[in-house]
């Protein structure tokens, strides 16, 4: 069943702060095999002008996608998550995420489309730090594949 268009523009309450740990950044950088010292060496990060180690560009997805759970699991929206695949992903950065950040995410449904029986959902996650300053925006396109005929 097509998703309700009246959900377009709906925003969900900001998530409680996620505190970015330096060892979590290290774990992520190691998992993707990225030896850039800006992720693990405070002095190297400082040489680039950052106050502390920074996170790789896609690290923040773990935080924004968890926040998008508010949308995905909204019983009123009724998305069938078992049929969902990740279609597109985009980030626009004001500054890199860094160790010690306490980040909150505000998720908004930007668009709902129906194409060939597939539901396409665009979610925007605005990430702010504890001072309320913008850090990064993440756009996630989810595609719920059409249910097979019974």
């Amino acid at each position: 069943m097509a998703l309700d268009q009246s959900f377009v523009g709906r925003s969900y309450p900001p998530t409680g702060p996620y505190e970015v740990g330096r060892e979590k950044i290290r774990e992520f950088a190691e998992a993707v095999g990225d030896a850039n010292p800006a992720y693990t060496d405070t002095e190297a990060a400082k040489a680039y002008g950052h106050p502390d180690v920074i996170a790789p560009p896609t690290f923040v997805f773990a935080i924004t996608f968890k926040a998008a759970g508010q949308v995905i699991e909204d019983p009123q929206l009724g998305l069938d998550y078992s049929r969902v695949v990740h279609g597109d992903q985009k980030f626009a950065y004001t500054r890199p995420v860094r160790a010690g950040d306490r980040l909150s995410v505000t998720s908004t449904i930007e668009a709902i489309k129906s194409m060939a029986g597939n539901d396409i959902l665009d979610i925007r996650g605005e990430v702010h730090d504890e001072a309320g300053e913008h850090v990064v925006t993440a756009w996630t396109k989810l595609v719920a594949r059409a249910a097979e005929e019974a």
């Binding site: 993707v32 095999g33 990225d34 850039n36 800006a38 992720y39 680039y48 002008g49 950052h50 920074i54 790789p56 560009p57 896609t58 597109d88 992903q89 985009k90 980030f91 626009a92 950065y93 500054r95 890199p96 756009w139």
Partner: peptide, 23 residues
């Protein structure tokens, strides 16, 4: 997505040089 951008971040050095990234 994380692997692909390494071609860019290894090229520029400072990963913060990436202003936007989408796939």
């Amino acid at each position: 997505m994380a692997e692909a951008i390494r071609v860019v971040t290894d090229w520029v050095g400072d990963p913060a040089a990436v202003a936007e990234y989408g796939v």
